[in-house]
Simulated assay, not measured.
Amino acid sequence: MTRNLSGLLAPAAAVLLVAVVVAAVAGAWPPFVAVESGSMAPEVERGDLVVVTSTDRFPWGGLVGAAESGAPTTFGSAGDVIVFDPPDDGQRPILHRIAFPVTDGEDWTDRADPALLDGDCSTIAACPAPHDGYITYGDANGEYDQSAGIAPVVREEWITAKALFSVPNLGWFRIGVDAAIARLGVLPTAVGFGGLAAVTGGFGAVLLGRITARRDRSDHGERGGRNR
């Protein structure tokens, strides 16, 4: 019974160990973000899993906007892609690209791309900039977040992580877990997914054991035939 329990818990422990190691390297927790919208398509699609790091983590330290000289290429375009969470908007964290930094009181539309603006500074609530921060946008949105009213000028302290790369479709599990937590609560979700993992691990262990036993019998039969 102890061996069976260890076999059931081993996959979960391995997943947890991988997550802890990735978090230690990335300097962010959780070290993964599940994408819930298509605002960063086509490079990052809904359901993708994005690996993130702390914004000051070597060798990826600092934040650089798309309009700045020497901007890194992330997801096929210039500029860092960040995860930020404005404290008062009631939305889930946003994964978007930095356009450029702004300072308190600046009319940032003077150096913005006109194609990503809907109006001028007099018609945009986030202009002039109410504080130091960053102008951001989703690659597929075609407008700055601050022009579209998606987010205010992003303060640096709202930024929780910087994106490194994405893995297609691996985020659906995380999205499913988050949806279950929102509907059922943390404890029922943990029990449900833990039970599912245990059952899956148990079936896998039984199947592997039968395959191994059948192979052993086959090998034994072959050796017996040769001996005769």
Rank of each mutant, 00 (worst) to 15 (best):
S37N: 07
A213W: 00
T73M: 12
A213Y: 01
D118V: 10
G138E: 06
T2S: 11
Y144N: 04
E106M: 11
L196D: 01
D48R: 00
V44P: 04
G194E: 04
D48T: 03
V64S: 06
P11Y: 04
V21R: 10
A71V: 10
V15K: 03
F193S: 07
A34C: 06
S77V: 04
S6Y: 15
D107A: 12
A197P: 07
G38H: 01
L17T: 05
V206M: 01
P11C: 03
V35H: 10
L184S: 13
G204S: 12
A125K: 06
N227E: 14
G176E: 07
F84W: 08
V52T: 02
G133H: 02
H96I: 00
F75H: 01
G70V: 05
W29A: 09
E106Y: 07
A151S: 13
L196Q: 05
W60C: 03
P11E: 08
V18N: 07
V167Q: 07
V51R: 07
V153K: 15
F193T: 09
I175V: 10
V102T: 07
D219K: 03
D132P: 05
T103L: 11
G221Q: 08
E36Q: 10
D107G: 00
G7L: 13
R111M: 12
E222R: 11
H131K: 11
G224S: 13
P30N: 05
G61D: 13
P101C: 02
L184M: 10
G65L: 10
A140Y: 01
S6L: 14
P59K: 12
L16Y: 10
G105K: 06
Q91F: 15
G119I: 01
S166T: 12
D216L: 00
W108G: 03
S218Q: 10
G149L: 09
A28P: 06
R223M: 03
G201A: 05
V191Y: 11
R46T: 05
A179E: 13
V50W: 08
D110G: 09
F75P: 05
D178I: 11
F100H: 08
I150M: 15
R174T: 14
V52W: 11
M40D: 02
G192M: 14
V21D: 03
R97S: 00
G194Q: 05
D120S: 00
E222N: 13
I98M: 05
V35W: 09
P168Q: 06
V64D: 02
D88K: 14
T2A: 09
V199R: 03
A10N: 09
F173K: 07
V35N: 03
G47T: 04
G47D: 02
A148I: 04
S77H: 15
E143W: 12
E143L: 15
V52C: 05
A198E: 02
V20G: 11
A205C: 10
R97P: 00
A13N: 00
G65P: 00
V52I: 13
M1W: 12
R155M: 12
D104Y: 06
G90I: 14
A163V: 13
